[in-house]
Design a protein around this nucleic acid. Structure first.
Lengths: 183, 183, 183, 183
DNA sequence: CATGAATGAGTATTCATTCAT
DNA sequence: CATGAATGAATACTCATTCAT
């Protein structure tokens, strides 16, 4: 279970690769070549495969990172206790997605074999807290369920990304989506 | 502009290829091989490339067909004069998207070079009629704009497809989306 | 079952590839690269893979060809009715093996996944005829069984090839082997 | 010639690596990875290459060890004076080969660059003693020469290994081979 | 026009070997 | 000396596209 801690240079390379991969896949989609990732990271191709034995592993690792980031952000918001935190978070995630393909892949399976479902688990809990709080304070209608919220978020991210909504349209669209949750 | 009329067998082949391509790309995504399309259509690979000089051309043609289909359907609904026709159409499109990747590609560019924007034009008009009518009768809030409706539809289609929402979840999610448009 | 007949150029290429492959694998072992085979055959790499979708398929095809050759030769000898035909055939095969790795691979599995056993079937029958005849005429002891003959032939081929026996030694060794079969 | 004596742990590592390598190459053939050898030996890959600068060196070392083993065994048998010791030894070696690829590689070069000929020298002498004794006592025909015996042994080992003869077939085949040496 | 064989650049992955830690 | 991360050449296989039959 607990791997031995990585050597300093290895950890640095792992990080570099992840960063490069996120960039490359954001720019050219997940069909971009691993070689390009290696080039951008400034390492040899073998190094990429030493850290991530498979392209799918690399993709999964990117998603994991992103998931951790989002989950942390959601937890922070939840801790602050603002009843509208759900709306804030929702909008933030969509904003992020507008610029980064990867967010979208985190929220819904793509075509890749990466099993996202399991990875969304962490995010799910965070969203659940936000939703519960919003319901309790009446910011959201009582019958709105967690899976619907996730579905709407997924849809918005996909849309924002794939359709390339301009900022203004994006904001109005998200507003309409959130309107659907209000009492 | 005006191509010479195709020979009967050529026209039949063109149709077969389009049908086969729609199936194949729906099943395996746009990364499916052109060879597979040819196989399914029962023609040789050369024939596919004679009709569609590029894989992108083939994809574009599929979308064009789908666009025509949806536009027609929207116009029919508009002609019937039901104030809630917009909702009906919206739901229908999402249902279709749930089973067919291609709808999604019609509504938003992907990674392919296909210029969808121009293709959505026809659909745009049809949706505009539906929206106008819905606004006039008060089925939809006055400030809801056309681009928002398209954005929501795009998002829902992408979500339904990519996330593979089960029917129940799909219906509830679409309901929430439409709730956002109501007064 | 019955494939459509190949176009003339395709058949020519197929033959060229087989010849080239036999040469290359004889020279460098089965670990030689498919690219080298293509180069030697004067075709592009894709062509090799169009004819033989897998390296194993290519190897299998070579063996099949060789098997057919040997089986034919054995049948010819059997038809002539010489009681010592088994000895003649045995010696011939070993001579061939001395120069060509591939013979050896026909007679025994290697490390490759090629299922030789099934392929030897044809040869087996031919050898059986020769052995039966030899037993009937008393050229070979009654208790000698077919599998032993095959085993000895396998062994001799492997030895001749791998150890690179000089002609003189090869002949004497085969003589000793055959001595073991005589009454 | 005289290397500085190895440190205790270094000597232990060398031995471990040799044992592991013998196992691994027996199981997966010489194309097995050096990394796998390291893993099995419980050392890092660098350690393997420190002891054996090249994969070929590692293979050569294994063979050297095996050669010493067999030579010792042959000498012991020769010392005991049994006229049939040659047969016994022959059978033993083949039995060993049936389970261990490495024996085969000892007796004949393969595709590797290892120069086996020189290595067989020691074994040659031992076999010579056995053969001489057998000839003197009439257990073997007078005209049987040493190189033929070696060739037969080589052949049998290759056959037993590559063809995977079942025990029963193996015994009968060896019996036939030895029959060829008898008066 | 249709066919399907040929092309060849592109991709993920492996592995012997080197070298900084 | 041992470690194990980095290297990068090599390899099997795929696929859009071209073109001779």
């Amino acid at each position: 279970m607990s791997e031995p801690p990585l050597r300093a240079d290895a950890r640095r390379n792992r990080a570099r690769i992840l960063t490069a991969a996120a960039e490359v896949f954001d720019e050219h989609g997940t069909s971009a070549s691993t070689e390009e990732v290696a080039r951008r990271a400034g390492v040899a191709i073998g190094t990429v495969f030493r850290h991530f034995p498979t392209k799918a592993d690399l993709l999964a690792a990117i998603m994991k990172e992103l998931q951790d980031l989002l989950a942390t952000r959601a937890e922070t918001l939840a801790a602050e206790g603002d009843p509208k935190a759900l709306f804030t978070f929702f909008a933030q995630v969509v904003e992020h997605a507008a610029g980064a393909r990867t967010v979208v892949h985190l929220l819904a399976a793509d075509g890749t074999d990466v099993d996202v479902d399991r990875q969304v688990a962490g995010l799910r809990e965070a969203l659940d807290s936000l939703l519960t709080r919003a319901r309790q304070t009446g910011a959201v209608r009582a019958e709105v369920r967690l899976d619907e919220v996730i579905a709407l978020l997924t849809a918005a991210c996909h849309g924002a990304l794939a359709a390339g909504w301009a900022p203004d349209l994006r904001h109005r669209t998200v507003a309409r989506l959130l309107d659907g949750l209000r009492p």
